[in-house]
Design a protein around this nucleic acid. Sequence first.
DNA 1: ACATACGGAATGAACGTTCATTCCTTTTAT
DNA 2: ATAAAAGGAATGAACGTTCATTCCGTATGT
Lengths: 191, 191
Amino acid sequence: MSKLDKRDEVVKAALELIAEHGFHGAPMAMIANRAGVGAGTIYRYFENKEVLIAELYRDLEERLFPVILEKYDQEKPIREKFMHLGTALLRYFIENPLDFRYLEQFHNSPFGVEHRRDKILGEKEGCDIFRDLFEDGISQQVLKELPLVILFALAFGPILAVARDHILGFVTLDEGLIIATIEACWDGIRR
Amino acid sequence: MSKLDKRDEVVKAALELIAEHGFHGAPMAMIANRAGVGAGTIYRYFENKEVLIAELYRDLEERLFPVILEKYDQEKPIREKFMHLGTALLRYFIENPLDFRYLEQFHNSPFGVEHRRDKILGEKEGCDIFRDLFEDGISQQVLKELPLVILFALAFGPILAVARDHILGFVTLDEGLIIATIEACWDGIRR
DNA sequence: ACATACGGAATGAACGTTCATTCCTTTTAT
DNA sequence: ATAAAAGGAATGAACGTTCATTCCGTATGT
């Protein structure tokens, strides 16, 4: 197995185990075992567990963003752009349950809260597609005049909840339900 | 300190520490310490940590339900009933951040998932006020014709997200914003 | 009224386990 | 032959839980 293969196996094993059992349910020894690698070997690629966890999250974002931005057309009306992003996001979660579960574990951990704090307070980034969309929507009077954070909650709260319910088997989402759900989210934020 | 006082101190300390640091960030020794009690004393009142955690959750529900059902009028129209429950719930979370944070920790733990699985699969309980309301709303064609689980997600997803953001200091909710948020949730579920 | 005996509540040091990390030996590649 | 990579046993810190002991309020006997 080559050097990069090993790193990859560690990443894959860690993602699977942490997604399924949480950070505390995925000991390094177990990750090493599933990766087919010695425990010490992990530390040749990641300084420690915390670094591994953060790296996993970065990888995840880098996989997610291109997918939901595929065929995203800045020129379309706001409603259409929201529908595109919302359905793409929900579809991604359903098709990649490991990624979704990892995302949840991360968000509900101290790392995740810190990460979000940085993101919300450092408002200068022009790279946040959702912020741009919502700010546009407010100034064009298409969206409710509410603080951005609340619009985010109205849009993403249900998406995350529905994705979780689907993955846990509490509901089965088909394409029709996905669209209906995102339309309902739109009803929540639109003026 | 009397017998009941000690039990109470343990419950209070455990709620605080777990709400703030999560289950794994609140060792029994730390709980005992904050409660002003010996480590072994906890085990006179709770068989083990798991039982303590479950008991804390039951206590929480028993505090929460009476509050949101206060002045709840079954005869009012569905929209009004939803607004009452939604605003009461959000207000409770804001006024009792420890309870909210504990609820989140619980829900994001294996206990919470199991608890929810039991609740969703055992559909027979007539005591679930929200289920009744939503079923009424669907049959009266006031609400969107979506699976109950999705309506729950649309209604509670944003409420939980907004409460979290308020408690973490990402937004400051006043009475006006509370009402506006719940109205937006209503827009999401109403037909 | 006082001293003594009793029993359950409380204690916290100690135990066994689990975990992240390190360290040293062995393997592999050049 | 040498250096880098990999392996996994060893390490020590942290945890939940246990248990022999202490403490204290009450009952008993004088």
